Simulated assay, not measured.
Amino acid sequence: MKKYISLLSFIALFFIGMEYSSAQHAEKQQSPEAIAKQQTYQLHQLVNLTGDQQGAIFKALVDAQQNRQELDKKDATDKLKQEGTITVDERVDESFKKILTPEQYKTYQASLEKKK
């Protein structure tokens, strides 16, 4: 009887470990839409976006996340990846300038400075 309990305990621990491992992997591989949704929500909390602004910001962030993931997939040098990331960030910044009001954009810039 003791052997069966030990065996069942081992099997249960094995499956718990498998679930934990797959949850961590899924967390690292979020879709661009999920990441953009989270970032849009954070920006909304910061500057109180309107509905139209939320949609436009979401689209810009999804595009940026897709581009970043493509950069990560390619076998490129670090310098090429850095240049690509800088280009993506500049495009996002340009989009934000067009979408946000000047006051919202200043608040957004100030929050970026605090993070640095």
Results as ranks from 00 to 15, higher is better:
residue 69 Q to A: 08
residue 110 A to P: 00
residue 67 N to S: 07
residue 79 K to F: 05
residue 92 V to H: 10
residue 48 N to G: 06
residue 20 Y to S: 12
residue 32 P to Y: 14
residue 112 L to S: 02
residue 18 M to P: 00
residue 61 L to T: 04
residue 21 S to R: 06
residue 55 G to K: 04
residue 33 E to Y: 07
residue 92 V to Q: 11
residue 39 Q to V: 07
residue 48 N to T: 14
residue 110 A to G: 05
residue 10 F to M: 05
residue 31 S to N: 02
residue 54 Q to C: 02
residue 25 H to V: 15
residue 64 A to S: 05
residue 59 K to L: 14
residue 77 T to C: 06
residue 18 M to K: 07
residue 84 G to L: 13
residue 16 I to N: 08
residue 29 Q to V: 01
residue 88 V to L: 01
residue 109 Q to H: 13
residue 68 R to K: 05
residue 57 I to F: 10
residue 90 E to S: 10
residue 93 D to P: 02
residue 44 H to T: 12
residue 8 L to M: 11
residue 55 G to Q: 03
residue 47 V to G: 08
residue 69 Q to S: 06
residue 100 L to K: 09
residue 54 Q to E: 05
residue 45 Q to A: 04
residue 35 I to Y: 07
residue 28 K to R: 13
residue 9 S to M: 15
residue 38 Q to V: 15
residue 106 K to S: 11
residue 29 Q to K: 15
residue 26 A to F: 08
residue 16 I to W: 07
residue 113 E to D: 08
residue 26 A to I: 00
residue 110 A to L: 07
residue 64 A to H: 03
residue 38 Q to H: 15
residue 53 Q to T: 14
residue 26 A to E: 13
residue 92 V to D: 05
residue 55 G to Y: 01
residue 33 E to S: 10
residue 54 Q to M: 08
residue 93 D to F: 10
residue 25 H to A: 13
residue 103 E to T: 06
residue 14 F to C: 09
residue 106 K to T: 07
residue 46 L to G: 13
residue 12 A to Y: 00
residue 98 K to S: 07
residue 24 Q to K: 11
residue 93 D to Q: 12
residue 110 A to I: 02
residue 55 G to P: 01
residue 12 A to K: 00
residue 38 Q to G: 12
residue 70 E to M: 13
residue 11 I to E: 09
residue 46 L to K: 14
residue 51 G to M: 06
residue 72 D to H: 03
residue 92 V to S: 02
residue 92 V to C: 11
residue 61 L to V: 00
residue 40 T to S: 15
residue 68 R to T: 03
residue 107 T to Q: 12
residue 106 K to W: 02
residue 11 I to W: 08
residue 42 Q to N: 09
residue 61 L to N: 08
residue 9 S to I: 15
residue 50 T to L: 12
residue 10 F to K: 01
residue 103 E to N: 04
residue 66 Q to C: 04
residue 60 A to D: 07
residue 53 Q to L: 14
residue 65 Q to P: 00
residue 67 N to E: 15
residue 100 L to A: 12
residue 97 K to H: 10
residue 78 D to N: 06
residue 78 D to M: 08
residue 100 L to P: 05
residue 20 Y to K: 07
residue 25 H to D: 13
residue 22 S to V: 11
residue 51 G to I: 07
residue 106 K to D: 12
residue 7 L to S: 05
residue 11 I to R: 06
residue 23 A to V: 11
residue 58 F to A: 04
residue 105 Y to C: 10
residue 107 T to W: 02
residue 20 Y to I: 14
residue 26 A to R: 13
residue 13 L to W: 04
residue 56 A to V: 08
residue 82 Q to T: 04
residue 38 Q to Y: 04
residue 27 E to P: 03
residue 94 E to S: 11
residue 69 Q to M: 12
residue 111 S to E: 09
residue 74 K to M: 10
